[in-house]
Design a protein around this nucleic acid. Structure first.
Lengths: 210, 210
DNA sequence: GTCTATACTTCGATAGAC
DNA sequence: GTCTATCGAAGTATAGAC
């Protein structure tokens, strides 16, 4: 980074703020927004959770909406990075499964931020909404391009528009955040394997197919 | 239904209110809640949409949360009724597809109410949340029982826990409300056929299976 | 069943000391 | 970077006339 400030010991990458504090703020806000909804969450509750006064928040952020924008962009950047990395897996037969696992592990690890990004798009101003949507469209295009390639390579059926295969896959993955319990009987990776199987092979017994 | 009230001309089924007005209130509120989120929706906006004064709302409802409860319960009652009806379809090979179509057509017709019910559960008081959850669990059990029956009859693969097949199917169907456009290129029924195919047969080409 | 008027609370954000 | 104190606006809901 081209930060013009010199960092003696800690004090991180952001131009005018400490990285660790900023991250804690984002995580705490995302957890609150997920639990109560953005509109019903107050700056008072957030400052209480952080153990500081309400006014002290405004040293770190300019407005409540700034938090929502930062949460949305950060969660999208993370999932784009991990899924893009997974899509370059060597074994072509396992590309889809690797991608599904990458998506699910990232989305469930950052579940508060990710669900907030998905659900609270409507709470953003038109300008901020457009900015988040741009990144969201980029992620969707990434997934769609992989699916289209897999169709050309014969690993995904070609009789369904890749646009709808992508939407169906994202349906299958996104809603999981609503009910997944990290302390439940399955890890994110196990869940990913199960959902991969259902998406790729379907719910019908093989014997009945064809 | 076993409504004991006889309806002369209008004035519907509710004990202490006009059916048409109540329905319009519910629809308008659901549309507003979907667009802005429950917490960010104000009684002022709602009364403006209805063309009445803010105070006049309280002749029809006791509180803002009452509206959310009524919306959630109503949308669940409707989808339970239509999916239960579809599950008694004659042709056993088409039961799943009939159920998926019934779910999708109902959820997309009542999309404002249905999405509000799904997303704003967190905005309810503990008592009201429990009440909505009871009905939601009943719907999930209905779907799971059908899937389990289809497994016994050999129409659905039995090597995956019906609990997770149900969650996967509801993932696939529920998220559709977020992106479905009624003026788009496909009807709800066409979308249902496509999602049925993906759920039952999977995304892999048949040639590659087995 | 709708109105005007208002009570009471809480909100996001700012000012300025330390 | 955190504090105390406060501003001005907006929130839900109620009172009581018509």
């Amino acid at each position: 980074m081209d930060s013009s400030t010199h960092s003696p010991i800690k004090q991180g990458e952001a131009p005018d703020d400490d990285g660790k504090t900023a991250d804690r703020l984002l995580q705490t806000a995302a957890s609150l927004f997920r639990k109560k909804g953005y509109g019903a969450s107050t700056t008072r509750e957030l400052s209480d959770l952080l153990g500081i006064q309400k006014a002290s928040l405004y040293h770190h952020i300019r407005s409540k909406e700034d938090l929502l924008v930062a949460i949305s962009l950060e969660s999208l950047k993370r999932i784009i990075a991990t899924v893009a990395a997974a899509s370059s897996v060597e074994d072509p037969g396992r590309r889809m499964e690797a991608m599904i696992t990458a998506h699910l592990e990232t989305a469930l690890r950052d579940c508060d931020m990710h669900l907030t990004m998905l659900v609270e798009l409507r709470s953003l101003s038109p300008e901020h909404r457009a900015e988040v949507l741009r990144l969201r469209d980029r992620y969707e295009a990434l997934v769609r391009n992989i699916i289209a390639e897999e169709q050309r390579d014969g690993h995904i059926r070609a009789d369904i528009d890749p646009k709808y295969l992508t939407l169906a896959l994202l349906n299958l993955l996104n809603w999981t955040i609503f009910w997944y319990d990290p302390k439940g009987e399955h890890s994110a990776a196990e869940l990913a394997t199960m959902l991969s199987t259902i998406f790729l092979d379907g719910a019908r017994p093989r014997a009945e197919i064809g």
